[in-house]
Amino acid sequence: MKRKPMRILPEALKQLFKKPATSKYPFEKAKLYAGYRARINFEVEKCIGCKMCMRVCPSKAIEIIPAENQPQPQIGPDGKPMPVKKIFNCIMNLDRCIYCAQCVEICPKKALAYTQDFELAQIEKKKLRLHYKN
């Protein structure tokens, strides 16, 4: 078998004049590709409360609850109460979320969407429980 000692030396010496490959992340902004899955955003207006997201969430991180302040039923011109769209809020437990974005995919009304917001570490556990409301 061919043997060549010190084969890596030229490469190693070349590195002396190059910048390190390490990314200086906390000091420089991290480069993300479009489509990186981070925090899931929720739009109250779009949600119809089908709770499909709750059904597919692998870690039971998402919770859809009826909003506290529902719109008052209004009386239509014919004297009957008009049908009113119920409003739903979303509780997102970031400590449980695994950022698979399956909820985004299953949502029929596109009320959920992933963002590029990935710096989510918190010292207090309470702050990891996001409450999206109207």
Binding site: I8, E11, A21, L32, Y33, G35, Y36, R37, I98, Y99, C100, A101, Q102, Y114
Partner: peptide
């Protein structure tokens, strides 16, 4: 060196799937 070069393929996976490790 190998781990530095491995970053390239992890970048490919992130670009393609949206995550580096658990592609989903």
């Amino acid at each position: 060196y190998t781990w530095r070069d491995r970053e390239q393929v992890l970048d490919c996976l992130e670009m393609l799937s949206g995550n580096r490790v658990h592609y989903g």
